[in-house]
């Protein structure tokens, strides 16, 4: 067998699990116990009737590690489905962030201007602060946060990525 690639890539993986206590702990424990990386993780119930939750986990590793992560997830008893959105074709990935910026005068105006460019909405304001809501790819949110840094960035809350494949097929 030819030498496997050592290149580290970022993968977004969707996992359908039973919405039972302990399932999320099992998934997270698998990542920590086996030394895999979690860049972001989101989870919520997506099908109340069947009591299913969807976990979206962004991880990175060599092709062999990514294959292991999927196989290890797949063999957990409460896991129904594992889909590698990065590998399976084009997909949409979105994250929401709430960004608190504290400042006055020109900086305050500048932060509004940039928010407008990024299509971020002000969802709260006081005399000297804004809370912006921004939705987009992780890189866009990174860029927005970086621009807010000199303008009085005070606090950030991010949801982690939610993702879904493009086209008419479900995972």
């Amino acid at each position: 067998m030819s030498e496997p690639s050592k290149e580290v890539n970022r993968h977004t993986i969707a996992v359908l699990v039973d919405n039972e206590p302990g399932v999320l702990a099992r998934v997270i424990g698998l990542f920590s116990g086996r030394g895999y990386n979690i860049e972001s993780l989101t989870v919520a119930e997506t099908d109340h009737a069947k009591s299913l939750s969807r976990i979206t986990v962004v991880t990175s590793g060599t092709p062999m590690i990514i294959e292991q992560i999927k196989a290890q997830l797949g063999r957990l008893v409460p896991v129904h489905k594992v889909a590698d959105l990065t590998q399976d074709g084009p997909h949409v990935e979105r994250e929401l962030a709430l960004v608190k910026v504290v400042g006055k005068g020109e900086k305050r105006v500048e932060s509004l201007r940039i928010a407008d460019i990024f299509r971020a909405r002000a969802v709260d304001s006081s005399n000297n602060s804004f809370v912006f809501e921004i939705v987009g790819a992780a890189s866009k949110i990174d860029a927005f946060i970086e621009l807010m840094q000199p303008l009085g960035l005070s606090e950030v809350s991010r949801t982690g990525a939610a993702a879904i494949s493009r086209g008419n097929k479900p995972i």
């Binding site: 067998m1 292991q68 196989a71 797949g74 063999r75």
Partner: peptide
């Protein structure tokens, strides 16, 4: 167990 495959040694 699919996770045993290609864990330590890549196979053909």
């Amino acid at each position: 167990d699919p996770s045993s495959i290609n864990k330590n040694v890549p196979v053909d």
